[in-house]
């Protein structure tokens, strides 16, 4: 029986939460198919690979090298494809992050196999069937993967990490030296001084829109996000107006997010915005227009002026968290 290969992602030697989620998706599928989950970790020599059995890995393969500290697309793809080649694996699973969305297609191309991106569930009961949002969440596909092997990327926050007790035996694998000549090389990763939590990965997102009236007033959004330990998001209107960087944009031409809590401040709720956040577990909207479409998807709403409500809310949350 072919097994499942999960390609994990690390940053600065620490395996990311999204990879624990990918392992959970792999574990559930493996249990349905009756096969094993193997994890592949590519990164710097000091990458911590202990305890991955507790997230569901039967075996952990490592390819660690100073040169692999940063994401080097060609080399990572080569290492992963080398492992996945040869029929030992039925499925390769990655987290649908910036890295996963770049590496997944490369592996699929090298294996000459189908790829499904950004899936929110995987089932192995009747062949491999996945669900995945399209049109940024305005519709949902149920797809049967008829090709084997296949590559699947799993949307962050869609699957919860599991507590398992698999062996997680670590085994080193060497990278093949046969790197294709046509490579691109990542020179460095620059994080801004105030390195912010990314809106696509955050468990809590506080987003602002036109109702904030001025770029400066985003301090209110930042303050509430900080009180909650969340990330800042923005509507397309304020990104297009140049108030916020596009990396914060939530919606069909921005990021699609599924946090536990999404708070929309002064966002009316255009179709393309709702598409990007409607899978949040809990949605809160604060807007002075009681007819704003955002209230149709919100679990809790306050009709009111963001300039009055948000400072009070931030204060109350700081208190609640202290208590």
């Amino acid at each position: 029986m072919s097994d499942i290969l999960t390609v994990l992602e690390q940053r600065e030697g620490v395996v990311k939460r999204v990879s624990h989620e990918a392992l959970a998706a792999a574990r559930a599928l493996a249990d349905e198919l009756g096969c094993e989950v193997h994890a592949l970790v590519i990164g710097p020599p000091d990458t911590d690979v202990t305890g991955l059995g507790q997230y569901g890995a039967d075996k952990v393969m490592t390819s660690l090298d100073e040169e692999l500290t940063l994401y080097q697309a060609s080399r990572y793809a080569q290492i992963a494809a080398d492992q996945a080649m040869g029929g030992a694996y039925t499925t390769v699973i990655l987290g649908a992050t910036s890295l996963g969305k770049d590496l997944g297609p490369r592996i699929a191309a090298r294996l000459g196999c189908p790829l499904t991106s950004d899936v929110t569930s995987i089932s192995g009961v009747d062949g491999i069937v996945v669900t995945r949002p399209v049109f940024a969440g305005k519709a949902i596909y149920r797809l049967k993967i008829t090709g084997s092997p296949s590559v699947i990327t799993v949307r962050p926050n869609a699957v919860a990490p599991v507590a398992a007790s698999n062996a997680g035996v670590v085994e080193e694998v060497s990278a093949s030296d046969d790197v294709k000549p046509a490579v691109a090389r990542t020179l460095e990763v620059r994080a801004p001084d105030n390195a912010a939590l990314d809106v696509a990965e955050a468990a809590i997102v506080v987003a602002g829109g036109r109702g904030l009236k001025e770029a400066e007033h985003f301090k209110l959004v930042e303050g509430l996000a900080q009180a909650l330990g969340g990330a800042v998001g923005a509507s397309r209107a304020v990104v297009d107006a140049g108030w916020r960087p596009h990396s914060e944009q939530v919606g069909q031409t921005g990021k699609t997010v599924s946090p536990n809590l999404y708070i929309a401040l002064g966002i009316s709720g255009a179709i393309q915005h709702l598409a990007g956040m409607r899978t949040a577990k809990v949605i809160v909207a604060i807007n002075k227009d009681p007819d704003a479409p955002i209230f149709k998807v919100a679990d809790y709403g306050i009709v009111g002026d963001v300039f009055e409500v948000v400072p009070r809310l931030t204060e109350a949350i700081v208190k609640a968290r202290e208590g």
Partner: peptide, 21 residues
């Protein structure tokens, strides 16, 4: 290698409430 079984609209979110003004 991918067959579409179904395309559906996302489930409606159950209606929330306005907690106040």
């Amino acid at each position: 290698g991918i067959e579409v079984l179904e395309l559906t609209l996302p489930p409606d979110r159950k209606s929330g409430r306005i907690v106040g003004e």
